[in-house]
């Protein structure tokens, strides 16, 4: 009987998976401005906001409001927790796609 690891429901959604994957490509400690992230992903502002809010509620994304001169700016970054969750998700998907021998599976659990 194959044990199916739980896939994190916050990340296991089409749009949020793309958002988290893109944010994970930033160097740890870097923040990206909201409109720039929107441009990178080709998502509408409203759509991206909804998904970021869900990620923020889960503690996976940190959203900072700041000012550059007089212009307000919203900066987005993956939190440590979010980075960890994404790595776990990727590992889980890879494990499901390429099942390892049972002994390794036991260690993993």
């Amino acid at each position: 009987m194959i044990q199916v690891p739980e896939l994190d429901p916050v990340i296991h959604a089409q749009a949020r998976l793309r958002v988290v994957a893109a944010l994970s490509a930033l160097t740890s400690g870097d923040r990206i401005a909201f409109p720039r992230l929107q441009e990178v992903l080709g998502m509408t502002a409203g759509n991206l906001s909804v998904h970021l809010r869900k990620l923020e509620d889960a503690g996976y994304v940190e959203v900072t409001k700041t000012h550059h001169g007089r212009t307000p700016a919203t900066l987005v970054q993956l939190s440590q927790r979010g980075r960890g969750a994404f790595e776990q998700y990727t590992a889980a998907v890879q494990a499901l796609l390429n099942p390892a021998p049972p002994s390794i599976r036991e260690e993993r659990r």
């Binding site: 896939l7 089409q14 759509n47």
Partner: peptide, 25 residues
């Protein structure tokens, strides 16, 4: 630069984008 984050009610979320991926691939 414009402030986008607050106007999340202006565009309804695409329901399909909240769906899980079709499969692991």
């Amino acid at each position: 630069m414009t402030e986008h984050f607050g106007d999340r009610d202006s565009t309804p979320p695409a329901a399909g984008h909240d769906a899980p991926p079709a499969d692991l691939a």
